[in-house]
Every structure is written in structure tokens, then in C-alpha cells.
Design a protein around this nucleic acid. Structure first.
Lengths: 389, 389
DNA sequence: TCCACTTTCGCAACGCTGTTGCCAAAGTGC
DNA sequence: GCACTTTGGCAACAGCGTTGCGAAAGTGGA
């Protein structure tokens, strides 16, 4: 209960702008940096000297940091590299079982819950149906029950750091409050984060499903700036800019579906005309997959022009039902655009990985992201026990 | 010649990602933070305790930092506040004359050059016609001449930290190389930054005019995330996200004008159809200012939806010729959008400040931005002397 | 006029950070 | 078996922000 906003990036300084850096901040920054590199290296591991090169710190500083991490049980030595004429480099790797996180994906009619270790590997999973219309109390109880069931069986050693929740509607990530979830007006203004945190007794982070998916992709290896376009019952986007998830001040970023691409277009459910979502859904309803893909490509092109991103990733039920058509349609538009400008086209790929896994990364981000507040203190974060279940 | 990329944000670590922080980095970060707050406070000044509150550092740390700044001549005491029952707070302020920067705005047919002090106040200005088609050699000579003329008359004390250059075409900010400037193919691939740096013997930074304008606005007091939309012979945007200018990996961000808002729209000069720039310019050609403003508003709405920005600023010759019409047109679209969502509308205002002033901020950013590399070392940056003039 | 009190702010000592100098360990190659 | 290269830890160090403390400079009541 003492740290319900872990990983939200809310600094210790009230001011929104940039904050001063003192030695503890410096320490946690560098520690997170090293942890992130260890995670990226995966099971292969990475040597101290490589860590030093990648961080810009001296080898001695890296030795000190990794020694701390080994003491805390977060890292361990894992073999040696071949020698290049001298003492071979010792390979370090993350200890996956040193910590866990729960990720929840609340969709309109189902709930998926995963338990992941520090590397993001799923070590437990549950899947049930869910009726978002059943009311806040019932849904929170059901969700907490699923999360609690996943957490049982973990000893105190590799405790659960927190619970990340991803769900569709517009919401306020910072305060963890839902806005008007489309189709479920009774959720408007519900403080989901605090309600769950109270029941679970540990840190909870809430975010949009598209943001969670994009975060999962960023952790999964996609680097730089990219957009994740999600086409299912609606059309939304998750934006990763310079390696960091871009939410906007009000968690409103990523409203890709309601960009207007046809000034005099057909009316959209949002009340406007010519939204790309309306055009895509209408085309799909007619069975015109290629046309929907083309329209999606136009939107992706607008995005690339505006933000100069490196990659477009596609996902969502509608896309996975006809992946080749959508890849081809979007790719065509971006290749034509690149040809006009004499640039290399922005690659388009299918997104891999689930939303629940991304939701778990909302918690792990506090450990691996060198952005200040969400620093790690293994002793400070008590094991999350499902007291209210 | 030794530091031609000052202020570009290129870190000392080759890796693109985040870098390790050591004590010198920490020091320059906090110093830049304090300098930025001093700049923001302006002539009124700011007390040490306010600096401590805003940065999150302890008062003692602020005292040490400000003592260094006073020793270096960058800050000075400027009176006292009224007492609140004890010793009154001593007010500190920036010493404007401690440093200068030159800002150049290369437009298609004219050149504006300004000399600004640390606060961004213009202390010297030149204005001449310029023919971008005259060839690189001639233009570089003319531009260097104007910059050199501005710099004469400054003693070594408050020396010139560098020259910032803003110009229209697509270009590579990091390498300082121009791409195909629209209408002037002979500039394609020209290394403008290095050519000017060689001639002037000091740091030079090159950026798009829209980016420079947006940076100038950010320094001028606009906080948070905003978009500067520039409508003149073309339509472009400068994006400030979370207080930082967003350029994209290839300096391609801000191609606002070539977003498609009419799938089957009229052909655009870029080879595509239905670009917002083509629609706006066509409407203006017909004299339909309100229609152009409406279309611009649609684009602004798309931008707000996608990025969740806090503010839209309008500028450019076309806008300043009919400011009320454009403000009304854009505002209407954004107010309608906000009404549909039950949110507060994003404010729309006219942009103030010139592009050349913003170009100068490209240099000053190295002093006031706590983003690592562009740290300040008063003795390290030699006075920029116009040797090649 | 004096005194108690509040508030600001610098000096000195301190703890902690990454860095440097040095050396043992562990390989390769002649 | 020796010279050499490379890794990586130990100890001393410089520099950062922090803490403890006291002087300075006001206010306000007696």
C-alpha cells in the first residue's frame, strides 16, 4: 500500500519538468541501465567490459555495480567467453527467478493473466471469461482473484513486484482512473488502480492495452521509435519514441483511429466524419480487406511523416485474421512514400507478444528503466500477498 | 574546429541508447538545470530556496552550484525579496552578457541574422537578400560574412558560443547535411554545418526552420508538449514533446503538410494525393481562407489525437496575413473534438518570435539543457572569431 | 531599545559515487 | 617454461550532494 505508483515515472519532485540528480538517483539510474543490458543480453549473458562499453562507465564502476547485483541475487556469473589472448571475459546474466510481475489483460469479454519472471518469460497463466458490464465490485473481485491465484506458489524469495493492468478504454495512467470505457459507462471515473492495490496489497499500474502491447514489444527487442497499430473492434496505436512509451500528459496519445483521412467521409461512432477507424471497419464489413489495409497504410504513412519513426508493427484480431493482406497493403503505401522522397522505406512487420505480457512490463519497467523514480530496492518492495482474496 | 557538434545532443558514448551517468555528467546536468531556471526567471530573478524546491536538490547543493556560477560570471545577486519573518531571500539572476549566440534564418530569398545574449534577447541584427540558387560557395561566403559582421564588436568576455542555422528543406540535423531543398537540387548532400564551421572556426548547428521556431517558442515560455504549425509557401510543423524538441532519427519529424486527409484528393507536389498542404494551398489560391483554416484545424485535430499535446501554435506568412480566420478555424475543430470527448479543448494561439532567434537557441540549448553532452565549460569554449571573413 | 524568534545561507565534516593506480589471475603463443 | 595480453578486484582518491552547525539579517512583541 505504501507504493501504489511504482513505475509510473512520477518523480519525487512535484514539478513536472526535469529534476535535479543526486547520488542515489545516479546510482539507481546506472543500476537500472546495467540491469536493462543484462535483460537484453538474455540467457547468453554479457561481460563486464561489454557493459562498460555500452554504458560509457569505467570497467571498475561496472564491477562495483554488478557485484552489488550479485549480492542482491539479481545477477550471476554464467560461464566465460573464448579468450582473445588473455584472461577470458566472465559472462554475467540476469537471475530470472529473482523477481516476478503479474500482467492482466482485461478485454471486453475475457481476462488473461500471466505471471512473468524478470526476463519477461511467462511462468504462469490463467484465462477466464469476464463481463465488464457486471459492475466494478464484481469485476475487481474476479480480477483480484485471478491475480492472487497466479501469485500463490511463489516463495518469498522471488516475490511479486506488482501487478500491471491493461484494458481498452481511455483512462488516466498517472492516477489509475478509468474514463468512459466505450460501451460501459458505469466505469467512468472508477479508480481501478487504487481499488486493486487495496485488495492486493501491492503496487498496481494501469494503462491502455495498446500502450502495454507497445511496451511489451519495446522490451521484446524492438528498438528506437516505432508505432504499434492495433485493429480489432477499434483502431488504436501505441507509440514508442526514442525507446520510451509516449502517453501524453493525459494518457490520450495513440488515438490513431480517430484521425480524419477523408474530409467528407462517412460518420464515425465518435461523432466526427471520415475517421480512419470508421473507414477501416466499413471496408472490413464489406469484406474489402485490401481496401482496409490500404486505408491503414495511409494512416501509417501520416504517422511516419509526422514522427519519423523507424518501424510499424501491426496487430489485433482483424490483422491476425488476414496478416498478409494487411502487411502488403501498409507496406505498399510506405514503399511508395519512400520512393517519392528517395528514402529507405520504413519496415512493416507483424507484432508478436501478448498484451498481458506487456502489462507485466509496466511493473518491470520500474526496475529496468533508468528514468528516475522507479528505482529498485529489493528489500524495500515487500512481497505482494493476496490478502484480500 | 574541435567541437563542431556542440549542442546537438550527441553523447560521449557512441551507443544511441541511454548512457551511464558519472559525476561530471551529474554536475553538468544539475548546473544546466539551475541555469535554465535562472533563464526562465528572467530579470526578476529567483532565490536559492526556490531553486532548491524546483530542482529537488538541497539548499546547500544549490548554494554550491550558484556559487560556481557566480565565480564563472554567469550569475549574480540581484536584490532581495521581502522578508517573511526572517532573513530575506537573496535573488539571483542570469548575467545576460556572459555569453552570446548567433542565429541565422536562411529563407528562400532572404537571410536574417541575429546576435542574442544568454537570455535570448536580440542585441544585434542584420537582414539581407539571399539567392539560394547562387550556389553553395557563394551562399556560404555571404552567410559567413553576415555572421562575422554581427560578431565583431564583442569583446572576449562575453564571447560567441556558436552559430545556429535554420533553413527550410529536409536535412540531417545530426550530421549537418542538407537533403534536397525544395526547388534547389544543387544543395542536395551539401555539408553546410562543416562548411560554415570551417569558415567561422566555431561550433555550428543546423536544423529545419520549423524546429528552430518551435525551440524558440519552448524557450520563450511555452511548456509541456506543443506543436508549431507553419503555413507559408509550404506547411510544416515543429513538435515539442515533454519540453524537448522531437526531430526523429533522421530529422524527418514534422512533415505535417504531407499527411493525407482526403483519400481521393487532388494531387500534391510531392506526388501523393490529398495532402493537407495541397488542400490548404489550393483553398488559399481560391481565396477561401476559412476553408484553409478548417483543413488546418482537421490536421491539428489529428495531431492532438495522436500525441495528446497541450497546445497548438500557428505561424507563417499565410497565417499572419489573416490570423483571426486561422485561429477561429482551427479552434472550432478542436473545440468540437473536445466536446465530443468531454475534455477541455486544446488551446490555439499565434506563435510569437522569429526563426533566427530560435536558431540561436540551437546553440544556447547546449548550455541550458540538462541532456548530457552539451555541458558548459566557459574556458573550454573558445571565443568564436570570424577568421574566414 | 532590547530580546526572542524566524529564515537564509555558508563553512566544515561526511557518506557515497565513479575513477585511478596497482597487482593477482588466467589465458595465448613462442 | 617464459613473455605477453587481457580481465577484474582491492585500495586510495577526487568530487558530488548531504548533514550539522552557526553567523547574518530580518520581524515583532515587551
Amino acid at each position: 500500500m505504501d507504493r501504489t505508483n511504482a513505475g509510473t515515472g512520477a518523480g519525487r519532485v512535484g514539478v513536472a519538468g526535469s529534476a535535479g540528480v543526486n547520488l542515489p538517483v545516479l546510482r539507481s539510474h546506472n543500476t537500472a541501465l546495467v540491469l536493462d543490458l543484462l535483460r537484453t543480453a538474455g540467457a547468453e549473458g554479457i561481460s563486464r567490459l561489454e557493459l562498460a562499453e555500452r554504458t560509457g562507465l569505467t570497467p571498475q564502476a561496472v564491477s562495483k555495480i554488478t557485484a552489488r547485483l550479485r549480492d542482491e541475487g539479481l545477477a550471476t556469473e554464467a560461464g566465460r567467453r573464448a579468450s582473445t589472448g588473455g584472461k577470458p571475459r566472465t559472462v554475467l546474466r540476469l537471475v530470472p527467478e529473482a523477481g516476478h510481475a503479474v500482467g492482466l489483460h482485461l478485454d471486453r469479454d475475457e481476462l488473461r493473466a500471466v505471471l512473468v519472471d524478470l526476463t519477461g518469460t511467462v511462468v504462469g497463466e490463467r484465462h477466464t471469461s469476464l463481463d465488464l458490464g457486471a459492475g466494478a465490485e464484481a469485476v475487481v473481485a474476479a480480477v483480484a482473484g485471478e491475480a492472487g491465484a497466479l501469485m500463490l506458489g511463489l516463495s518469498g524469495a522471488g516475490s511479486v513486484l506488482g501487478v500491471g493492468v491493461a484494458l481498452p478504454g481511455p483512462l488516466d495512467h498517472k492516477r489509475g482512473v478509468l474514463h468512459r470505457v466505450t460501451g460501459f459507462p458505469q466505469w467512468n471515473g472508477f479508480p481501478l488502480r487504487d481499488a486493486l492495490a487495496r485488495r492486493l496489497g501491492g503496487p498496481v499500474v494501469v494503462d491502455k492495452d495498446t500502450n502495454a502491447a507497445a511496451l511489451g514489444l519495446a522490451v521484446g527487442g524492438e528498438s528506437g521509435s516505432f508505432a504499434y497499430l492495433h485493429l480489432a473492434t477499434g483502431l488504436g496505436a501505441g507509440l514508442v519514441i526514442g525507446g520510451a512509451l509516449h502517453r501524453g500528459a493525459r494518457t490520450g496519445a495513440g488515438e490513431f483511429g480517430h484521425q480524419v483521412v477523408q474530409l467528407d467521409g462517412p460518420p464515425c461512432g465518435c461523432g466526427n466524419r471520415g475517421c480512419i477507424e470508421a473507414l477501416c471497419l466499413a471496408a472490413m464489413a464489406r469484406g474489402a480487406v485490401d481496401e482496409a489495409a490500404h486505408v491503414l497504410g495511409i494512416g501509417a504513412g501520416n504517422l511516419v511523416a509526422l514522427l519519423d519513426i523507424d518501424l510499424v508493427l501491426l496487430g489485433g484480431r482483424t490483422v491476425t485474421a488476414a496478416p498478409d493482406a494487411f502487411l502488403r497493403g501498409v507496406r505498399t503505401v510506405l514503399v511508395e512514400r519512400a520512393g517519392r522522397l528517395g528514402e529507405d522505406p520504413v519496415p512493416v512487420r507483424l507484432a508478436s507478444g501478448g498484451v498481458a505480457e506487456g502489462a507485466a512490463q509496466l511493473i518491470l519497467a520500474g526496475l529496468f528503466n533508468p528514468s528516475g523514480a522507479g528505482s529498485f530496492s529489493p528489500s524495500g518492495v515487500g512481497p505482494l500477498t493476496p490478502s484480500g482474496v
